[in-house]
């Protein structure tokens, strides 16, 4: 039996949008629920994929897990310890285990440090090592991520995108991470390099028994690497289940739309064309009308096909994440 390494319960992250100079007089605050009531768990050696469009809150979840931003409410349990309310100093030992691969290739590496110094720093954050040990560990890491030794004396801006990504991965491994939040690890890379990185991440998982939270907008890559997939829409998980099920038989209309738009651009014309082309409201949380039932309703082909039933838009009956199958949850009144 494998154990749960990370559990997230009812995680919420709300941003207050300051309404400008006179917001105090307006008497209301605009709250954007970037992450709204998200729960999931990840087991050891498991990859959980998190898919969604820009602004759906997937990156916010990753950053909250690493306590780079504080959660509004909810619980994050890592290896049996509730880490939600730990102070920075108390949380520091956990940083050895939880690491993140940042989306932005250039930005995550200090531009004025040579690659060797970057790796050396990561190795010595949590433990003291002698110089010989450091050299040994660095060459080990380089081998693991397939990076040439000659690159050690380079600065980050002298590396190509793929190499930067490898350095980023090597750094998380240097710390000794067991659980890695991979935030769009391939989106900034060229197609030919993407495949290398995806393969590398999978190899490392096997070798080092890592667990991943794999965040991406590309459903294909997520399906490929993940054991479990959660699809997010405007801060909520709308569908979650085993990877194969999500790919083969999506139950939420949004997943179906997402899937058809990716895998085969020709298929499922019906789903594509029924959607309201009203892109003005797409993907952005509209705080003028918060919590009006299902958040996907304005774009939902099923909602339009069923002649806009009120159950979808009534705040009192906003859909909940229900188990419809073994290990398959959907937030929809009319699952496909």
């Amino acid at each position: 039996m494998t154990d749960t390494i990370l559990e997230v319960q009812n995680l919420k992250k709300h941003y207050n949008q300051n309404g400008g100079l006179f917001s105090a007089f307006k008497g209301k605050e605009n709250v954007i629920p970037a992450v709204d009531d998200v729960s999931f768990y990840i087991k050891e050696k498991e990859t959980m994929g998190l898919v969604g469009e820009t602004g759906c809150g997937k990156t916010t979840i990753g950053r909250t897990l690493l306590k780079l931003i504080p959660a509004t409410s909810g619980k994050i349990i890592f290896n049996g310890t509730d880490i939600t309310h730990l102070s920075a100093a108390q949380f520091r030992p956990f940083r050895k285990k939880i690491q993140m691969i940042f989306q932005d290739l250039d930005a995550a590496l200090n531009p004025k440090m040579r690659i060797k110094a970057i790796l050396q720093e990561a190795l010595t954050v949590h433990c003291r090592l002698s110089d010989a040990e450091i050299d040994h560990r660095i060459s080990e890491l380089l081998e693991m991520v397939n990076l040439k030794k000659s690159k050690l004396s380079n600065f980050p801006n002298e590396l190509s995108g793929g190499e930067k990504r490898r350095v980023g991965i090597a750094r998380t491994l240097a710390v000794g991470a067991r659980f890695i939040v991979a935030d769009e690890p391939t989106s900034a890379l060229d197609v030919s390099i993407q495949a290398q990185v995806v393969n590398l991440l999978r190899d490392l998982q096997k070798e080092l028994r890592l667990s991943y939270l794999f965040i991406s907008h590309d459903l294909r890559v997520v399906e490929l690497v993940s054991h479990k997939v959660a699809v997010m829409y405007l801060g909520q998980i709308v569908e979650m289940g085993l990877a194969g099920r999500i790919a083969n038989a999506p139950r939420h209309p949004y997943t179906a739309v997402l899937w058809s738009s990716l895998v085969d651009k020709k298929s499922d014309e019906s789903i594509k064309n029924e959607g309201n082309p009203n892109e003005g409201q797409w993907g952005v949380f509209d705080f003028e009308r918060p919590n009006v039932g299902c958040r996907f309703a304005p774009r939902c082909p099923v909602y339009h096909a069923k002649n806009r039933p009120t159950i979808c838009t009534d705040p009192a009956t906003s859909p909940q994440l229900q188990k419809i199958d073994d290990a398959h949850q959907v937030r929809c009144h009319f699952p496909l």
């Binding site: 780079l68 940042f102 932005d104 250039d106 930005a107 004025k112 440090m113 954050v125 710390v175």
Partner: peptide, 26 residues
């Protein structure tokens, strides 16, 4: 650029980040 955030995620203390990463290197 979020290398400061990345350094925090690595587990470095604020003092190290400020003195080493920010002041000394940059």
């Amino acid at each position: 650029k979020n290398f400061i955030e990345a350094a925090t995620a690595l587990g470095l203390k604020n003092a190290v980040i400020i003195i080493k990463h920010i002041l000394w290197h940059n």
